[in-house]
């Protein structure tokens, strides 16, 4: 049985009002059960010499893993703006090295995980990564100046 056919069958059952359908042939065994709104498909391959059908494991009701908390990216005034804050006290640097260009400027596009600055604290260097994708609209701190815990550093427009 092909995936397309199974899909058709599910659609049919979804509209039918049936809660459970079992189909068994020499080649396969198919059990479709409805949990709430979404039907669940189970296809068990029978021990047959016939060519093995493609196994379908559909779990439409599977919950997506919860998004991890992003404390550094607190929402700013506008709903689509996110502030990147300093996770520690230290010195804010816009580049990795005094001779290198800044990681980001106003207008730079950033992706999640992109380094936006370095915070140096007692000779430990911390690459601060953006937790959102978007565009830098504000740089709030001067290069090589001290920053406090939780001090806003950048505003990103998503």
């Amino acid at each position: 049985m092909e995936t397309k056919e199974i899909q058709k069958l599910i659609d049919f059952i979804a509209q039918s009002g049936l809660d459970e359908v079992n189909i068994e042939t020499s080649e396969l065994k198919l059990a479709i059960k409805r949990f709430g709104a979404a039907p669940v498909v189970q296809q068990v391959v029978a021990a047959a010499p016939a060519p093995a059908p493609v196994a379908v494991a559909a779990t439409p009701a599977a919950a997506a893993p919860a998004a991890p908390a992003t404390p550094a990216a607190a929402p700013a005034a506008a709903s689509n703006r996110v502030t990147i804050k300093s996770p520690m006290i230290g010195t804010f640097y816009r580049s990795g090295n005094p001779n290198n260009p800044a990681f980001v400027e106003v207008g730079s596009e950033v992706t999640k995980g992109k380094t936006v600055c370095i915070i140096e604290a007692m000779k430990l260097f911390n690459e601060i990564e953006s937790e959102v994708s978007g565009r830098i609209v504000e740089v709030l701190v001067e290069n090589a100046t001290p920053v406090e815990f939780d001090q806003p550093l950048f505003v990103v427009e998503q």
Partner: peptide, 13 residues
Amino acid sequence: ILIENTLQGYTIE
């Protein structure tokens, strides 16, 4: 010693 951390939010990655 020169330590370089990459941070994700408030934790060290």
